[in-house]
Design a protein around this nucleic acid. Structure first.
Lengths: 337, 337
DNA sequence: TACGCTCCTGAAAACGTTTACAGAGCTTGT
DNA sequence: ACAAGCTCTGTAAACGTTTTCAGGAGCGTA
């Protein structure tokens, strides 16, 4: 591969001049500039990013550490971050921890070693090992989606508690008095907040409820929802509505209900949480507590760039509102089956 | 951040010795090794990857360039690649071209500048600009999912033509004589192959058919399927079955059918192509021509590592079989509506 | 002519590693 | 006692950039 030295030789100038032309820094006479550009063209020169990073002490690379890449919510999140940062000249390295704390910590180390300028992290659980790595390296991070008390960083998320409350309230308002709740994870702060919010609403209105929480972390979220729903539907009295704290789990739950011969929403209402695009196209379309996914990503990216440019000591917490998106999968209670 | 120099100073040894300990290369006496490791621990030392890459002339970084990150098929693909390569000590940089040739080419340049050791590319269209960048830099690539004639590279894909034929045949065998086909893109070779395969089957059996092809590339694949189906259902005679060449488009199509008051599969059969996990949880569960997604990713990654280690001049083409996965969204023709 | 500008250019150091090379201290066999 | 061969360690060069510094050329002014 051609180096700056080859360019200099071909153009008959010094290394410094080539560098100045490439980076458009400092003054170079038009004649030399032309020669350099011609040489760059001729040799298909592409600057060596590692060398540049080494010298400049910045990589213009941002780490994005999420629990699961192959998941509509996190996929959309990563996507929106990518789009925002691309415009600003930053590239991202997406790492999927696969809901595993060890892997998460391992990836944090990888990002530190790559000397990313910053990182956006949606933590897998309550384990903070990964955060240590960034802290030691003084790499600024932004926490997204899942709050983590005690981490000195900017945070962007929705009010999960409120969303949980709001979702449960929707079902209660429809007349449901036996409600099943499916949590997607025992160790995620976001899930806990949603669950507590929902439980509060249920208690506030004296609604009979049953909670399903998975024993182990799993990547099979559809399957989780499926089995959780099967379990809940076997309870006595059977719930007339299910609130899954994740859209993906809700989809699994819907499938289970239909498998059991129940029609949605006539015999069972199902609602989710997240607001993934897919929800609108399901049959029936999924009622959900929607997060502003794109906005979460954009705000996080913006905040990160801010803390990269000027080392700030004040950390912001941005809380975005959830929105109840009512569609066809929930309906009024029609009486006992 | 601590450097190797700091470690050397603290441990009272030379840079070379530290390097030898860290990389477990060459012999170092147990005593010194201990001192070095202690210093590494004390200073939270993390090797500087850019510096290392510069010197070693390898990054152990693999570029993954896909048309769309936020898409179940490509998400799963990226995920399986990531998992395979992580084991082997390689990290990936995921880039999403968003079905845009310019952006794709831009990202190829980015990867070249990062000096990735290799790249796995699922091309967006027929534009080969991106391939030039890798070729000039002599960076080995593996083409995945979408074939591209004339690119000197390893290729891993399914037999899309055969899959298209197979899918159409399934509908024909069910007795359908008016079939609509939805293509997801005009410019993707994979889509064209699927389409031609399907058309061949339809012609072979004298089946009336209608094809919908989008005019412009879009990222809204659900929406594409939705509108395509609405369009097809308006035709006279209306199709009794729809074959969407993408699962995501099939989901949109199912939604459109229900919106039009048709029940699936009684009044309209819908089938897709890809075999995304989600398909099994839809209501009704989606019949599809399934690709072995994980396997595609693994084989591609394996092939890439092979061509990185020993510069090969022979390029392989691996064709994996598709599998017709029959579920609930297709059924026998019940007579004219 | 001498001086002080501005504009342009190149030499050289630096970024944090790895590694070729050489030297120092041992052991071993003669 | 000495050569030869180990094992261990350090010095210094190299990887491809960016950037500081100094100096030369040209020009207007005193």
């Amino acid at each position: 591969m051609a180096t700056i030295k080859d360019i200099a030789q071909l153009a008959g100038v010094s290394l410094a001049t080539v560098s100045r032309v490439i980076n458009q820094t400092g003054n170079v006479s038009p004649a030399l500039r032309e020669q350099v550009l011609a040489a760059v063209e001729a040799l298909n020169y592409q600057p060596n990013a590692p060398a540049r990073s080494l010298r400049r002490r910045e990589t213009r690379l941002i780490g994005v550490l999420i629990p699961q890449l192959n998941h509509p919510f996190f996929g959309t999140l990563a996507y929106s971050i990518e789009r925002f940062l691309f415009e600003k000249g930053f590239r991202i390295m997406v790492c999927s921890a696969e809901e595993d704390a060890d892997r998460e910590s391992e990836y944090a180390q990888v990002l530190v070693r790559q000397r990313v300028d910053g990182a956006i992290v949606a933590p897998t659980g309550l384990d903070l090992a990964w955060a240590e790595h960034f802290a030691h390296a003084r790499i600024p991070i932004v926490l997204i989606d899942r709050d983590l008390p005690g981490v000195p960083a900017n945070r962007v998320m929705v009010d999960n508690w409120q969303g949980g409350y709001q979702g449960a309230l929707h079902l209660i308002a429809l007349g449901h008095r036996h409600i099943g709740v499916i949590s997607a994870s025992r160790h995620s702060q976001a899930m806990q907040d949603r669950l507590q919010g929902a439980l509060q609403a249920l208690r506030d209105h004296n609604v009979v409820h049953q909670v399903y929480e998975p024993d182990v972390e799993t990547l099979q979220q559809y399957d989780l929802g499926f089995h959780a729903a099967l379990h809940l539907l076997k309870q006595q009295p059977a719930p007339s509505a299910i609130f899954a704290l994740t859209d993906v789990a809700a989809i699994g739950a819907m499938h289970a209900a239909v498998r059991e011969g129940l029609s949605i929403p006539d015999q069972l209402s199902v609602m989710g949480f997240d607001g993934i695009e897919l929800g609108a196209y399901l049959i029936p379309a999924l009622t959900t507590v929607a997060q502003p996914i794109e906005q979460l990503g954009n705000v996080a990216a913006e905040l990160l760039l801010k803390s990269i440019s000027r080392a700030q000591t004040e950390y912001e917490l941005v809380v975005l509102p959830t929105q109840l998106t009512q569609r066809a999968s929930t309906g009024a209670w029609r009486g006992a089956r």
